[in-house]
Simulated scan of single mutants.
Amino acid sequence: MLAFEKALEMGCTGIETDIQRTKDGVLVLIHDEYVNRTTDGVGLVCDYTYKELKKLDAGKFKDKRYKNIKIPTLKEFLSYVKDKNIKINLEIKNSIIPYKGIEKEILFEILNTKVEDNIIVSSFNHNSMIELKTMYPKIKIAALCEYIVSDLEKYKIDKFEYIHPNYIFADKKEILKCHNKKMGVNLYTINDEKNMEKFIKYKIEGIITNCPDKLKEVIDKKKF
């Protein structure tokens, strides 16, 4: 939660985060399927109960100043952002571990918090996104992928509201193709100023970055 608070202090207009599920069905925000890299624990998130997960330290790996930071729940996060007027990109991490039924559970939390208008739900599991859209047609979905054109054709995802490709494989022509299909383009993960400026000029809808302060400087400086 400290990271989300800091992001808003830095001027972010949106937050991207990742959803896994505990052994006892609690939706939590952590990028990796394993807890090893970002906590003092070992093993898969899905093998921990929420009570067990809360015992892990998710801050001191970064710096001893952040000792005792805990992995947040989706419910906790949505409660925090519901009055913030920012875009929220929830990535379901269900392409490696399928987390059966997680779409319905996430949708419940979104609708219960009444933040659906500000939400984009994304995943590399495109069938999962289609299932979510079937449940609630008003929800905005995004297809995470590496390439734009080949993936549009291969996975038939041109009916999604957004596509989230790796910026390394994106170019102006392919972005235009998405725009012609009325699809928004949010690129990941751009951390250098040169590429930030380049893709902003291509009229993409959003940049996912680890350096929001740098992106804000680019936007303010260039006055796009």
Rank of each mutant, 00 (worst) to 15 (best):
M1I: 11
L2K: 14
L2H: 12
A3N: 06
A3M: 05
A7S: 14
M10Y: 09
M10C: 03
T13R: 05
E16G: 08
D18R: 01
R21N: 03
R21H: 00
T22M: 06
G25F: 07
V26R: 12
L29Y: 02
H31S: 12
D32T: 03
E33G: 09
E33H: 14
T38F: 10
T39H: 05
C46D: 11
T49G: 08
K51H: 11
K51M: 09
K51P: 01
L53Y: 08
K54V: 01
K54W: 01
K55C: 07
G59K: 08
R65G: 00
K70M: 02
I71H: 04
T73G: 06
L74D: 01
L78S: 05
K84A: 06
I86Y: 06
I88S: 04
N89E: 10
L90Y: 04
E91L: 02
I92Q: 05
N94G: 10
S95A: 10
I96C: 03
Y99N: 04
G101K: 04
I102E: 00
E105H: 07
L107H: 05
F108V: 09
T113E: 11
I119T: 05
N125Y: 03
N127W: 15
T134K: 15
T134W: 08
M135N: 14
K138C: 00
S150C: 02
K154W: 00
K156F: 01
I157T: 03
F160K: 05
F160H: 06
A170Q: 09
A170E: 10
K173V: 09
E174D: 15
I175M: 08
L176I: 14
N180C: 08
K181P: 04
K181I: 01
K181N: 15
G184A: 10
V185H: 11
V185D: 08
N186D: 11
Y188M: 12
N191H: 06
N191M: 04
M196D: 12
M196H: 12
F199Q: 06
Y202P: 01
K203C: 02
I204R: 07
E205T: 15
C211G: 01
K216S: 02
E217W: 13
D220I: 02
K222G: 00
K223W: 00
